[in-house]
Nucleic acid binder design. Sequence first.
DNA 1: CGTATTATTGACTCCATTCAAAGATAGTGG
DNA 2: CCACTATCTTTGAATGGAGTCAATAATACG
Lengths: 240, 240
Amino acid sequence: MDRLINDFQVSCKNCNLDKICLPRGLSKNEIDDLSIVVRTNSVLQKGESIYRQGDDFKSIVAIKSGSAKLVTNDGQGNEHILNVLLPGELIGFDGMYKNHYTCSAIALEVISYCELPVSHFDELCQKIPGINRELFKHSSETINTIHSQVVCSNYTAEEKLAKFLINLSDRLKARGFSADEFNLPLTRQEMGEHLGMTLETVSRMLKSFQEKRMICVDRKYIQIKDQQSLRNIFNDSNSE
Amino acid sequence: MDRLINDFQVSCKNCNLDKICLPRGLSKNEIDDLSIVVRTNSVLQKGESIYRQGDDFKSIVAIKSGSAKLVTNDGQGNEHILNVLLPGELIGFDGMYKNHYTCSAIALEVISYCELPVSHFDELCQKIPGINRELFKHSSETINTIHSQVVCSNYTAEEKLAKFLINLSDRLKARGFSADEFNLPLTRQEMGEHLGMTLETVSRMLKSFQEKRMICVDRKYIQIKDQQSLRNIFNDSNSE
DNA sequence: CGTATTATTGACTCCATTCAAAGATAGTGG
DNA sequence: CCACTATCTTTGAATGGAGTCAATAATACG
């Protein structure tokens, strides 16, 4: 029975996220080497955490299925959601600096994830230059993601929310999901904590988009009816 | 003459930033290897750029002396100052993801800087595991720096500015400068672009701190008179 | 010395927050 | 299955912090 499961076990070589996740830039041989040390098939329930702020850095993590949130606590109980994580996204680079994570990764639904343990990290980087370079690229991607969040922080509430919806739509599309029809992984409260506004403002803005026939909202279920108008909200406004 | 200059040339081995910059976690031998490939002694005038948004990724850069700003343009002429850079700080990791820089690094005064060229990057990472790990740590530090900026983005103008001044003070102190007496490297306009507020608000807040006897302001010259009260502004407010 | 840049200050406006209440939905246990 | 509770969401009214607009002042620079 154990054997049977192992035979069917997903590893990097037969993972469908190979165009998004760590293997994306790697050759077949490199992926084989990677597969040996990556731990797969960890499953968490909603609300459980992959790691918590302050934990010792133990691995670079890739979301395999489901969604998660990256949360940080600024010492005074003030929570901020740094990012929403979708399948194929790598997290944990923040933990390398001082060898402990500076934010918590919490499941927003049932998730599965894979890990590249720190115990094999250096070894793998030395052995396979391609993986080393790819890890740097993912770390760099993380930096770019946060940079764009910093830039968005002085957008208006309307611009922020439009950007959030389009960004989510684009990322879902890249993973083979519908770009125009999806469930929000966050509550209004959490969207507020992510975008820097109150939950009331989130609610009002969603309603406003609906009144403008850009989206249809039913609680967490969103249908995007007019992608372009939504994009124009944050593209037009600052131009000329 | 050329020989003479070379003999006195600063390299990582005899740099006084060895406790902050890339060499900070390295052994003597590792620093020797690093010194061979690091290009030093580049000098720029105020307003000139180390690299510009969109340029091909060519190196990881360390500020050697002076200060610089990291600026990004969100496509619609909207500028945001992502960070102020002091000696010993590494930049350029943002360029690794897509092989071009996503922000510009611009001198705020006469600066000098050093470069680890991409042509030697992989080779060095393979040859010296310690340098590879240290580069990841610096990339991770960059992530943590931006994370904390994201968190600060929903602070009030007063909290943001207090945090900015204390952060600058701490970083100057770590580099051997006075913690309580320094020149702001940015104009009011630039501070606004960095912190997400208008220049008028920056001006008003500085005045307000001065009226509360926390600082003395004379244009760009700042004296911090009461570090603790300034810290309490962003520590107290969200507590209990 | 004159011009450009940078900084200060005031008055008014507005976007988003706060406070408050009610409505909707999901989950639980009797 | 329904009542009950907790959680989440919507909506309204009032408030306030920071932006905008505008004018003046101070400083740097050629």
